[in-house]
């Protein structure tokens, strides 16, 4: 097995990493780039906690080889909004009490961002379907759905 320097585009910046071929995107983000906002609950594609955007589409970073994401745009929770102006979803999740322990939250927010970007005005059903692969053990999803609905109703952001 070899290691090589690979450049990934993460949150709009080129990031060069010496990585082994067998690294998953999750490992690179968390262990090499110190972007620990992306969580993991199973490492096997079963919980959704590791979701990040690749070219705007939410994927499970624990299932994706980092090398397969070369030449693609990766967005993690750290890349949404900016310090001064967080993403409206981040504000809404906070205000609606959509995070309890907060462990599922980054992936939920990421998934919701992709939904809103791709979908003018999602219905409650659309929202439930979009986050069906994101398990949350604390909230019962209710306030998460409300938070997403509230941003959806504000129109395109």
């Amino acid at each position: 097995m070899s290691e090589r320097i690979v450049t990934l585009s993460v949150n709009g910046e080129p990031r060069s990493v010496i990585m082994p071929d067998n690294a998953t995107l999750l490992e690179i983000l968390r262990d090499h780039l110190e972007l620990t906002g992306t969580k993991h609950g199973c490492d096997l594609g079963e919980c959704g906690a590791c979701a990040v955007l690749v070219d705007g589409v939410p994927v499970l970073s624990c299932l994706v080889l980092a090398r397969d994401t070369e030449d693609h745009q990766i967005t993690t929770i750290e890349g949404l909004g900016n310090g001064a102006a967080p993403d409206p979803l981040q504000v809404a999740f906070a205000e609606f009490g959509a995070a309890q322990c907060g462990y599922c939250t980054p992936a939920m927010v990421i998934t919701a961002r992709a939904l809103l970007d791709g979908h003018g005005s999602p219905s409650e059903e659309d929202i439930r379907a979009a986050i069906a692969g994101n398990l949350c053990r604390c909230t019962g999803y209710i306030k998460i759905i409300e938070a997403i609905e509230s941003v959806a109703s504000m129109g395109p952001t």
Binding site: T36, G37, G81, P86, L89, Q90, V91, A94, A99
Partner: peptide
């Protein structure tokens, strides 16, 4: 909201 809510939604909480 929880005091740390914005940290949570920005992925800034250190677990």
């Amino acid at each position: 909201p929880r005091l740390d809510a914005m940290d949570q939604t920005r992925g800034a909480v250190i677990y």
